[in-house]
Amino acid sequence: MKAFTALTVTELRLLSRDPASLFFTMAFPLMLLVLKRGESAPVPGYLAMIAAIGGMGALPGIVAAYRERKVLKRLATTPVSPLLLLGAQLVAQVTAALAGSTLLVAAAIVIFGAKAPANVPALAVALVLCSVMVCALGFVIAAIMRNTRGAGLIGMLVMFPMIFLAGAAVPRKALPDSLRQIGDFLPLTPGVDALTSAWAGTAAFFPMLILSGIIVAGTALATALFRWE
């Protein structure tokens, strides 16, 4: 437990020192909020976006670098399992998503006078599920791609269309019909749905169930495909 805590603190420190991570999880969503003149309707989508940027935009490159630079192998020579480092990265990404989301929601309420989310516990659960789900997808990408550059690039290439088509960056009703239908099959869509429902007051069971299913399937796939070196 001591080692896991130390690893998690280190991973959080490293994330907070990465200007790109900091910008996309903290500053960028605030910019979008300002551009929307503080309108609160798109905020739940932005929360899903914050999670996706961390889990799919950043995580695959970080994990692939740990393999490429033999950090995982070096850990395997200590009493600590390299699996613990991946766990620490997951906890750090979820914590970063919660921090970025809290900042955004607070700004919406304090600066723009938005109404507070109607069901905060459901919102928190939906956000954690959504964040763990995108991290699971990120681990799958890190498992499939061999090098750091490839993993980072594929992460971005998967993440960007998804945040638009799943209704995270822009509402899905603004999309043309054909594109909106693609969104029905994207894993981030139930995340946006769960967050939007929770914001409005309902704990939406079905989207959360789908998120949990994707987490289980993604973790199993990543475990089966992951190479430690």
């Binding site: 420190r13 490293l14 630079r69 033999k70 192998k73 070096r74």
Partner: peptide, 17 residues
């Protein structure tokens, strides 16, 4: 592993640590 220390060929740490 509690009793052995190792330095591996070409192993590195994250740049920002």
């Amino acid at each position: 592993a509690q009793r052995i220390g190792a330095q591996l060929q070409e192993s590195a740490l994250p740049d920002r640590i």
